[in-house]
Write a protein that binds this DNA or RNA. Structure first.
Lengths: 150, 150
DNA sequence: AGGATTTACATCGCGCACGATTTAATCGGG
DNA sequence: CCCGATTAAATCGTGCGCGATGTAAATCCT
């Protein structure tokens, strides 16, 4: 394929030219880099993301967590039960609207934040990218996500 | 955060500033976009990636598929058994090295390629990006993956 | 007011995905 | 030639992740 041409069909059918596969495999790579760091906190990677959302804003419903993380209640409910079992959060039905479950940090959950302080720096280091590059790439990918969900 | 500063710690702890989350959530978004297209082929998204690898080069071992896709045998073995059950591939122990399993396309597996012809175009369309942009972004993300796995 | 509809979460079944372990085959050194 | 080490898959247990479905509460509508 030359610079001026559109990719040929043969090119498009090669795995290495799939943007989705780049994303897919890089996502797995991130999970592997996070693993040893999160093992210290007894968290999985998705559980860590939930904690990040709660550290940012405590006392949210299952629905609002799902909206933030793009996850369904069928994914979150079991995850939240595990986090509750570990003592990091509590799940309580909302008094005024019993359909909703309010998720709040426990003391232990708030304390965990300090232990997790270094994680973003370690990860940023593993990317080998400069902060400004990271921000730009992140933004590009986020806007791709928006296109896909449109 | 101003243009000249490094991100503050508070910034770094916000979910929206996580490159990993952009990747994670965009990966899920891709899965959703692929779903209706792949339903026609009776394939899941990871199964489709396996088929793409085999369409590119038939007759591979479980190990080489895993190297290509960054997956372990514990993931591939059950997946390959499903694809075999659907009649798209066959799994046969290598005569000369009985430790290896050779994965080859069946006639039905090769035929499926034609039915899948339009998929890359539909996906490219859903990204809303120009071919050249797609290639550049894909390359950037692939090199990020390389850094992470180093 | 009260039945129909909508909303929020939970449950279930299925398919990844991995680490740890197991099994079987091959390789290598003495 | 044989026994220990290595290699390739498979197996097992755990945790996402989703769509379809269920359940109960809130809301809507006349």
């Amino acid at each position: 394929m030359t610079k001026a041409d559109s990719p040929s069909h043969e090119d498009l059918m090669k795995l290495d030219n799939f943007l989705c596969f780049a994303i897919y495999s890089t996502n797995h790579a991130f999970t592997r880099v996070y693993k040893p760091l999160l093992d210290e906190l007894d968290l999985t990677y998705p559980q860590y993301l939930v904690m990040v959302v709660l550290w940012e804003k405590d006392d949210q419903t299952v629905g609002s967590l799902g909206e933030r993380l793009f996850l369904e209640s069928s994914t979150l409910t079991p995850m939240l039960k595990r986090l509750e079992g570990m003592g990091y959060i509590s799940r309580i039905r909302d008094r005024t609207d019993e359909r909703q479950v309010r998720v709040t940090l426990t003391e232990s959950g708030r304390a965990l934040r300090e232990k997790a302080n270094n994680v973003p720096y370690d990860i940023a280091g593993a990317t080998g990218m400069k902060p400004a590059e990271l921000v730009r790439l992140k933004q590009e990918i986020a806007s791709l996500r928006t296109s896909l969900l449109r």
